[in-house]
Structure formats: C-alpha cells, structure tokens
Amino acid sequence: MSEQNTEIQQFDSIILLRDHLLSNLLGEDIDAILYWAGKDLARNHPVETELEVLRLFEQYSFGMLTQIEEKKNRKIYRLSGEVIEQRLENDQFPSFSLETGYLSQQLQRLNNIYSEGIYEIKPKKKEVHLTIQMDPKEPLPIDQN
C-alpha cells in the first residue's frame, strides 16, 4: 500500500471516529467533553515550546496550526489542511473543541497565565480559527498548570 493511501485511510479513520462515533456517543455534550479532554491530553503530554505545540498538531492529525494574530491578552490561530477540509466536507457540524482545549492548556502551561479558548469554523476558507483568551491578571500557581 502506498504512503498516500495510508495517509488517506488515516484521515478517514480520524474523521469516522471524531465526527461520527464520538458525536453519537457524546450527543449535545460533545463540545464540553472534548474541550476538557483536550486540556487533559495537554496536561498529560506537556511541551517545552510553542513550536512543539504547532508540530504536535500535525503529528496528532489535528491539522496544520498557524498563529495569525497576537495581542496582549489574545492569540488567534488558523487550523487548516487536508484533514480539516475533509472534516468540514463530511460533517455539517464537526467539533474542534478537542483541539481548542489542547491548545488552550498548552499555552496556559507555557505562559503560566489562565487561558480559555473558543473555535470558529470558516467554511468558505475551509479552515477553523482558534482564539485563546489569556488573563495576565490571573497568573496560576506553578503547581496548578
């Protein structure tokens, strides 16, 4: 089997699990559960740099993550790539809460600042924007990350 066929099967498997099976199992609670699952994944697999976070997004088949805006209290990222395009084509309401929770928790740990995130699907651009809001006035105790 060619490498390209293996990648296509991997994407199809991810889409099947993420957008069909989990959606059926979790129902209307999918966004809340996946968000906290993403945070838990980040807590159990911490990184040392933001660059590592960007690389892991591709490695975990979350998509290609690119920072597109940075302000004092907010960072916005673009999530794009083939897996994102396929998920948007195959499901009317895919959830990107797992990715959002994962990114939020990694940034919270790296910056030692309370962080929460939301996502917005951009269907015409075939991408998703992840917005991470950080509260510099609410630093976390080092052992709370």
Score class of each variant (00 low, 15 high):
residue 19 D to T: 04
residue 50 E to P: 04
residue 11 F to D: 13
residue 41 L to E: 09
residue 11 F to H: 10
residue 144 Q to F: 14
residue 41 L to K: 12
residue 83 V to S: 02
residue 40 D to N: 12
residue 44 N to Y: 04
residue 115 S to P: 11
residue 91 D to V: 09
residue 89 E to R: 14
residue 91 D to E: 12
residue 97 S to Q: 06
residue 141 P to I: 08
residue 11 F to G: 01
residue 68 I to M: 05
residue 1 M to E: 08
residue 46 P to N: 05
residue 143 D to R: 10
residue 22 L to I: 03
residue 116 E to A: 12
residue 141 P to C: 06
residue 48 E to Y: 08
residue 87 R to Y: 04
residue 32 A to D: 14
residue 32 A to R: 13
residue 99 E to F: 01
residue 78 R to Q: 10
residue 24 N to D: 14
residue 59 Q to L: 12
residue 12 D to E: 15
residue 6 T to D: 11
residue 131 T to G: 05
residue 145 N to Y: 07
residue 83 V to C: 03
residue 16 L to C: 10
residue 115 S to Q: 06
residue 101 G to N: 05
residue 78 R to H: 05
residue 111 N to P: 01
residue 11 F to Y: 13
residue 107 L to N: 03
residue 109 R to K: 15
residue 25 L to Q: 11
residue 68 I to R: 03
residue 10 Q to E: 13
residue 110 L to F: 08
residue 111 N to L: 13
residue 4 Q to V: 15
residue 97 S to G: 06
residue 58 E to Y: 01
residue 7 E to D: 13
residue 102 Y to K: 04
residue 91 D to K: 15
residue 95 S to R: 02
residue 140 L to M: 15
residue 144 Q to G: 06
residue 108 Q to R: 10
residue 78 R to D: 04
residue 8 I to V: 15
residue 105 Q to N: 07
residue 50 E to W: 10
residue 4 Q to L: 14
residue 62 F to C: 05
residue 126 K to P: 01
residue 75 K to H: 06
residue 62 F to V: 02
residue 63 G to F: 00
residue 5 N to Y: 11
residue 120 E to R: 15
residue 7 E to T: 11
residue 36 W to Y: 14
residue 96 F to N: 02
residue 47 V to L: 10
residue 126 K to G: 02
residue 63 G to Y: 00
residue 26 L to A: 05
residue 127 E to T: 07
residue 139 P to D: 10
residue 121 I to S: 05
residue 141 P to Y: 10
residue 82 E to W: 03
residue 139 P to N: 09
residue 8 I to D: 14
residue 69 E to M: 09
residue 65 L to S: 00
residue 114 Y to P: 01
residue 78 R to S: 07
residue 19 D to M: 04
residue 57 F to V: 00
residue 60 Y to K: 04
residue 94 P to R: 03
residue 104 S to F: 02
residue 34 L to G: 02
residue 50 E to H: 10
residue 87 R to H: 05
residue 73 N to Q: 13
residue 136 P to Q: 09
residue 70 E to K: 15
residue 37 A to E: 07
residue 47 V to E: 05
residue 85 E to D: 09
residue 137 K to A: 14
residue 73 N to I: 09
residue 39 K to E: 11
residue 88 L to G: 03
residue 122 K to E: 12
residue 100 T to N: 05
residue 69 E to S: 12
residue 1 M to Y: 09
residue 3 E to G: 07
residue 29 D to F: 06
residue 128 V to Y: 00
residue 5 N to D: 15
residue 65 L to C: 01
residue 43 R to Q: 11
residue 126 K to A: 05
residue 9 Q to S: 12
residue 124 K to L: 13
residue 92 Q to P: 07
residue 118 I to K: 14
residue 57 F to E: 00
residue 55 R to P: 00
residue 73 N to Y: 08
residue 94 P to T: 04
residue 41 L to F: 12
residue 105 Q to T: 06
residue 53 V to M: 05
residue 89 E to T: 10
residue 24 N to L: 14
residue 100 T to H: 03
residue 80 S to C: 06
residue 43 R to P: 00
residue 143 D to F: 13
residue 118 I to V: 15
residue 17 L to R: 13
residue 1 M to Q: 09
residue 98 L to G: 01
residue 124 K to R: 11
residue 76 I to P: 00
residue 66 T to M: 00
residue 128 V to P: 00
residue 28 E to W: 03
residue 81 G to I: 00
residue 69 E to L: 11
residue 119 Y to F: 14
